[in-house]
């Protein structure tokens, strides 16, 4: 059921006219959520996703994709994070951060956590723009073709039925 529901939500996201901005920024935030390994940081990012009017399905889908990708990127994050954490000028800033409430729980002083966060933040805007462009391209060129697929048709019927049931209720 969970799998079907998720699939349904993905179809809704792509096939309906939900704002591309919401989906794009949702995907961009989901990217950071997927890359960062620390649970505390994940919670903070999830709150941010919930707080802003971005598409949650897009965020979770992007999170899942980037979480898989992060395994391969970890050595790169380690290098980036270690370099950033050892910048002499920023040492006093990190010390201040390290002694702030809640912040130590984010484990920002770990090279992989810092590297993934930096990478995610750098990729945030390009990710958003890219996601928006891809989505617009899909909706203009591919949506009609995909909507003719049997699986999509079944799922769209299911979506419509649940909509009707909800209306009747």
């Amino acid at each position: 059921m969970f799998f079907l529901k998720t699939l349904k939500q993905i179809v809704v996201m792509f096939q309906t006219d939900i704002s591309p901005d919401q989906i794009a920024w949702g995907a961009a935030l989901g990217c950071i959520l997927g890359l960062v390994p620390n649970m505390m940081m994940k919670i903070v990012l999830f709150i941010v996703i919930m707080l802003f009017r971005v598409n949650i399905t897009a965020a979770l889908l992007s999170c899942a994709l980037y979480a898989i990708l992060s395994f391969a990127l970890d050595p790169l994050f380690d290098v980036i994070g270690f370099y950033v954490l050892n910048i002499g000028i920023l040492n006093s800033f990190y010390t201040w951060l390290y002694n702030l409430p809640v912040v130590p729980f984010t484990h920002f002083n770990n090279s992989v956590v810092m590297g993934s966060l930096i990478f995610g933040l750098i990729m945030f805007v390009p990710n958003g723009i890219l996601a928006k462009k891809v989505l617009v391209y899909y909706r203009t060129h591919l949506r009609d073709k995909v909507s003719k697929w049997k699986v999509v048709k079944i799922l769209s019927v299911a979506i419509n039925t649940t909509k009707v049931v909800n209306l009747v209720k």
Binding site: S70, D74, P75, D78, N91, T95, N99, N109, N110, V112
Partner: peptide, 16 residues
């Protein structure tokens, strides 16, 4: 189970 890399911890001075 494949785990994420543990990375390296950089320790900063503790105050308070």
């Amino acid at each position: 189970v494949k785990q994420r890399d543990l990375g390296r911890d950089v320790i900063f001075k503790q105050k308070l």
